[in-house]
């Protein structure tokens, strides 16, 4: 095992990919807890499609992919937040509109310029070769920002996630937190999508939170477990993809799926073990 790892890490591109991947997985999992609980996790899917469109444009214009994608995806994130807050169009419908439009623009741009080739496949399903030094720097900055947010403002994030109206009523700037979370999500998506693939990146946001929620019942433990599961799944996924020469993104998603099934099974078993005794024991004041 150690041999395999040291062999893997003798490739500089793999080291970069693993560093970026671990940091993005960590951030996506933390942000995902809040997004999933607020029923807003589809934003990840929407933004990844916008990311796909901007990557295609950047390639066509011969521009640096991050420089084009990050500002556009951030704008899309803010727009989606605004639309879902004003509730004129329902949030999920708005996301579908924006994501299919971007996908269509991306596909047309690609077919007009380079034509449908391996590039498209890489954008859709990810490529481990895509990570540069710039990505590493940016993902370290992102992780620092997300961790600071979650450690210093953990209690506020809980309050906004659990009950936004109450938080607002006691004087919290809830709009600011929503904006910050969307903003960081946008960056995490753009960073992760070239490796994980536009079609698969949103799983990093959704899976870990849902997995953690199978077993844990407190916000704190769900948050911590989600981060740990996400990082572990990414690492195992990358190693497997190296060993069996499978695509990285898909391998990581399969690990997340297995973790979800495992946690789900664990809950079923503990429920069975406790049996109906627990139900009877449940204190009932009412």
């Amino acid at each position: 095992m150690l041999e395999i790892l040291s062999e893997m890490f003798s490739y500089a591109f793999l080291v970069r990919a693993v560093v970026v991947g671990l940091l993005v997985s960590l951030c996506a999992a933390l942000l995902g807890v809040s997004l999933v609980l607020k029923r807003y996790s589809m934003i990840g899917d929407g933004l990844s499609h916008v990311g796909f469109g901007t990557l295609a444009l950047a390639t066509a214009m011969n521009a640096a992919p991050l420089a084009v994608s990050i500002p556009v995806v951030i704008l899309a994130a803010i727009a989606l937040l605004r639309i879902s807050e004003s509730s004129k169009i329902k949030g999920d419908a708005a996301i579908a509109l924006i994501s299919t439009s971007s996908l269509a623009i991306g596909v047309v741009v690609i077919s007009l310029t380079t034509g449908m080739n391996t590039d498209v496949c890489n954008y859709m399903f990810g490529s481990i070769l895509a990570m540069t030094k710039e990505d590493v720097t940016l993902s370290i900055t992102l992780a620092a920002a997300v961790l600071t947010l979650f450690i210093l403002f953990y209690n506020n994030i809980f309050a906004v996630t659990f009950d936004e109206t109450f938080a607002q009523a006691v004087g919290m700037k809830t709009g600011l937190y929503n904006m910050l979370i969307s903003f960081l999500t946008a960056i995490a998506i753009v960073l992760g999508m070239r490796m994980m693939g536009a079609l698969l990146i949103s799983s990093l946001i959704i899976f870990p939170a849902l997995t953690a929620m199978r077993v844990f019942k407190k916000f704190k433990t769900v948050t911590i477990c989600s981060a740990v599961v996400s990082v572990a799944c990414f690492f195992v996924g990358v190693v497997c993809s190296y060993l069996y020469a499978t695509p990285t993104g898909a391998s990581v998603v399969i690990m997340n799926m297995l973790a979800f099934l495992l946690f789900w099974l664990a809950r079923l078993l503990t429920l069975k073990a406790r049996g109906n005794g627990a139900k009877a024991k449940r204190v009932s004041n009412f």
Partner: peptide, 25 residues
């Protein structure tokens, strides 16, 4: 303030203590 309950809260993973403490915000 005691708001009308939302659907999202019905399956929220939080302990009663975490919820009550958030009132001190």
């Amino acid at each position: 303030y005691l708001p009308q309950q939302t659907d999202a809260q019905k399956d929220f993973p939080a302990s009663a203590y975490e919820v009550v403490l958030s009132g001190r915000m």
